[in-house]
Amino acid sequence: MWKLFKRVVFILIVVNISSIMWGRFFNPPITFIQLEGLIKYRKLHRDYISFDEMGSLVKRAVIASEDQNYFRHNGFDFKAIRRAMINNQKNDKKRLQGGSTISQQTAKNIFLWNGRSWVRKGVETIFTFMIENFWNKEIILERYLNSIEMGQGVFGVEAASKYYFGKSAKNLNKSEAAWIAAVLPNPKKYDPKNPSPYLKKKHEWIMKQMRDVRLN
Rank of each mutant, 00 (worst) to 15 (best):
W2E: 11
W2K: 13
W2D: 12
K3H: 12
R7D: 11
I11R: 13
I11C: 12
I11W: 12
I11L: 15
V14Y: 07
V14R: 08
N16A: 15
I17V: 15
S19M: 07
I20Q: 00
I20A: 05
M21L: 15
T31D: 09
F32W: 11
Q34Y: 04
G37R: 04
G37P: 06
G37S: 04
L38W: 04
I39T: 10
K40R: 15
K40Y: 08
K40Q: 14
Y41F: 15
R42P: 00
R42D: 11
K43C: 06
H45K: 13
H45I: 09
R46T: 02
S50W: 09
S50L: 08
E53I: 07
E53S: 14
E53W: 02
G55P: 03
L57Y: 02
V58I: 07
I63C: 08
A64Q: 00
S65D: 02
D67M: 05
N69S: 15
H73E: 12
N74R: 15
N74C: 05
F76S: 04
D77K: 02
D77M: 02
I81H: 02
I81R: 03
R82K: 14
R83C: 06
A84G: 10
I86C: 04
I86V: 14
N87G: 01
N87M: 05
Q89I: 09
K90F: 06
N91F: 14
N91K: 15
D92N: 14
R95P: 00
L96M: 11
L96N: 08
G98H: 03
G98I: 02
S100T: 06
Q104R: 02
Q105E: 09
N109M: 08
I110K: 04
L112F: 06
L112P: 11
N114F: 13
N114H: 13
G115A: 07
R116Y: 10
S117A: 10
G122P: 01
T125D: 08
F127M: 05
T128K: 04
F129S: 05
F129P: 03
I131T: 06
E132K: 08
N136D: 15
K137T: 11
K137P: 12
K137C: 09
I139P: 01
I140A: 01
L141C: 05
E142C: 10
R143P: 01
R143N: 01
N146W: 00
E149K: 03
E149W: 02
E149G: 00
Q152V: 04
F155A: 06
V157E: 08
A159D: 00
A159N: 07
A160P: 03
K162I: 03
K162A: 02
Y163H: 14
F165N: 03
A169Y: 03
K170G: 00
K170A: 14
N173M: 11
N173W: 10
S175W: 12
S175L: 15
A177G: 15
W179T: 00
A182Q: 12
A182L: 11
A182G: 14
V183Q: 01
V183F: 10
L184I: 12
K189C: 01
K189D: 07
K189E: 14
Y190S: 10
P192D: 01
N194Q: 13
P195G: 04
Y198C: 00
K200T: 11
K200D: 11
K202H: 13
W205E: 06
M210R: 06
L215M: 09
N216T: 13
